[in-house]
Design a protein around this nucleic acid. Structure first.
Length: 300
DNA sequence: AATCCGTGGGG
DNA sequence: TCCCCAAGGAT
């Protein structure tokens, strides 16, 4: 059988993509020249599963308040959770706070540029480690997020969308596309993400304005529909995730500890409510005071 | 590998 | 309205 991935000519031309990125990329604040590794790490963490427009104002505030890792590390967990606001998945804030402490104490208050060192930090996984290495330090690193997976699925494999993720295979796919030199590879990684976000979108891809449409395998195949296994959509209404969110929202909005009765008001199912409060305590997102009330951690 | 972890906007 | 999903990570 013929194998597309082993063809001699790369299916995606780095120069075309980078040129397009240089002229068309959105001027996001964390892309501004002079953004520190810390700024990039904060942005990448906030952007995990959270849209750009919601992240932007919070990121600006964080950079103003905590311009270095040690600044954040010196803050209480509760204050960090409050400043995280409603970005969602607040455990990210806790892990970023922990990572800031490690960076301050063990890395001279400078975010590491080495992928393996980054991977050792809490809350930093395969995506974020490589995004920091590439975007903050100009390293050649295959940055694979949901957008890049879709672009590769279409442009390289001719499929309508990416199948289930497989870190090893996904990394290899993108690694094969990147040119050898660090600067261009890093730029191309950013370009692949941008393309997936603004052009090669899930529902209505703007192929007419795509810089690589002419050598896109999906285009040449007649843009077939996605044929892989059905995507799993997580429920939210009625789940522990919703209840935890409501409980935490009460604590974020309160200046001091709150009694159990105030928390009782957010959810009628007492069993689920108690289970969720317990899990928040276990996760370190909530602490219980000596008199039995509840508060954000480190604020009483 | 599958599941859990928040939140809010758009189709 | 409901359903999908948006720069993932940890277990």
């Amino acid at each position: 059988m013929t194998t597309i991935s082993n063809s001699a000519v790369p299916p995606v031309n780095p120069v075309e993509l980078v040129d397009w990125f240089d002229t068309s990329a959105r001027p996001l604040p964390w892309r501004a020249p002079g953004t520190t590794g810390w700024g990039v790490l904060v942005s990448e963490t906030m952007l995990q599963q959270t849209p750009v427009n919601r992240v932007q104002p919070i990121w600006e505030e964080w950079m103003r308040r905590w311009p270095r890792p040690s600044d954040l590390a010196a803050e209480s967990q509760g204050e960090v959770l409050r400043a995280w606001g409603k970005l969602g998945y607040p455990r990210r804030a806790l892990r970023l706070h922990q990572a800031a402490g490690v960076i301050a104490d063990e890395h001279g208050d400078v975010v590491p540029s080495d992928v393996d060192t980054l991977l050792a930090l809490p809350g930093i996984g395969a995506y974020t480690a490589r995004a920091v290495a590439a975007f903050a330090y100009g390293r050649r690193a295959p940055v694979v997020d949901t957008n890049v997976r879709r672009v590769v699925a279409r442009a390289v494999h001719g499929a309508g969308d990416a199948g289930p993720p497989s870190t090893k295979r996904d990394l290899a796919d993108v690694d094969a596309l990147l040119p050898s030199d660090d600067a261009t590879a890093a730029r191309m990684s950013a370009a692949l993400m941008e393309l997936g976000q603004v052009v090669c979108t899930v529902r209505s891809p703007a192929c007419e304005s795509c810089p690589i449409a002419h050598d896109c395998a999906w285009q040449h195949a007649g843009r077939p529909a996605y044929a892989g296994p059905p995507k799993k959509v997580q429920k939210f209404a009625g789940t522990d995730r919703q209840v935890r969110g409501k409980l935490l929202d009460v604590l974020r909005g309160s200046t001091g500890p709150v009694g159990r009765h105030e928390l009782d008001a957010v959810w009628s199912d007492a069993g689920q409510r108690d289970r969720c409060l317990d899990s928040l305590l276990v996760d370190g997102l909530v602490e219980q005071t000596a008199d039995g009330r509840f508060a954000l951690p480190g604020e009483h």
